[in-house]
Write a protein that binds this DNA or RNA. Sequence first.
DNA 1: ACTATTTTTTAGATTTACCTAAAATATTTT
DNA 2: AAAATATTTTAGGTAAATCTAAAAAATAGT
Lengths: 220, 220
Amino acid sequence: MDLSKAEEDYIKAIYRLQQDNGQVGTNAVAQELKTKPASVTDMLKKLKLKRLLHYEPYQEFKLSQEGKKVALGVVRRHRLWEYFLVEKLRLGWDEVHDIAEQLEHITSQRLIDKLDEYLGFPDTDPHGDPIPDANGKMKVSPRVSLAQLPLHMPAEVCSVGSQSSELLEMLRHLHIKIGTRLEVKRRFDFDGSLEIKIRNIPLFVISQVMAQNLFVTHEH
Amino acid sequence: MDLSKAEEDYIKAIYRLQQDNGQVGTNAVAQELKTKPASVTDMLKKLKLKRLLHYEPYQEFKLSQEGKKVALGVVRRHRLWEYFLVEKLRLGWDEVHDIAEQLEHITSQRLIDKLDEYLGFPDTDPHGDPIPDANGKMKVSPRVSLAQLPLHMPAEVCSVGSQSSELLEMLRHLHIKIGTRLEVKRRFDFDGSLEIKIRNIPLFVISQVMAQNLFVTHEH
DNA sequence: ACTATTTTTTAGATTTACCTAAAATATTTT
DNA sequence: AAAATATTTTAGGTAAATCTAAAAAATAGT
């Protein structure tokens, strides 16, 4: 079955919303794709017809098994390309998302297999998100937001909560990237800000909003 | 100005036909793009409106200066990607054309600049065709078809006349690739076949059709 | 339980890139 | 030069993906 760019975009969006929020609505999908709810309804019908989606008018909808497989394929392509763009072409991690949005729609199994091999079968993309393997499996490592990390516990940044270039640009300014080791030294009750320590850098403060968008791993 | 995939495809096709045949017609374009002459007419009007094409009904048409620039951009992207697919991902030179047809439509100047740099600013693609640089300039090396090469003159294969996988597959079978050094030992009047000598390989014969599709350079 | 609000769907248009069939124009042949 | 043939264009239609505006259904508020 060959899908259009639009179909793939909808499936990917529905998948994302399903994972993050549990339930999905036409409004949410429309917002995600910068389109209108009426257009979403049209697409839902088409995806149902292609058996990629379970859907009845006015009811909850969710991806079918087949639909999930498609979504994972798109995510896999997107993240492999992002890895390529950052690690090989040396583009900044804040400028690769939009390019990967286009590359992800190129469907050649052979291309993706070779790319994966060329990159050394990476299992996370430059933002720390897991890359599904050829069978759709991905390593989901337990992660904790910085906002929940106990004080004085050494931890390592493993992913960011969003792809927005504003966030990524700010992180670059703060010298925080995937793999950065840090520790929370203090938590301010006033506004939830955290004081952070990174090796070789003086203590500094980040907002609660930022903390909620930074995920870390730590040795128990 | 942002162009659709269809518009880029038409411009590229018209450019190719212009170079190869001099004059172009709606029929030729239609055949090249596997579409119908009526559809070509529609597009010609649109391209004229965008000032990419000089066109009046029932008359010859040709790309404007601006149109040629667009065409060279598409060709540049196509050939850089082909180079990447063969030299980096190690795909066969007979399987990269279709993939590059898709990749060529991804328009991010930044992406292409970085790709070019990553590849080391190559000036020919895996089929020996010149890659336009960022300004649209390309090194056109004087090339002679094997059918015209004088007997016993050592020469080096520098490009092939078509991208068809049938041709490329046959060349692989014959151990001929870009850079292969060879010599024409004999020319048969009967059907224009040539007897070829390649170092380390016994003499063998190729057809006239094949000879016309192989281009070589030689020291005068 | 019944409004009020929000969400979702339908109905009807629009745009892009196609198509077929027929008309208009060019070109070639006799 | 007229007839026959080619090519190109017009006219009108289709499918995909979108839109707006209005109707239908679900959810929430009192």
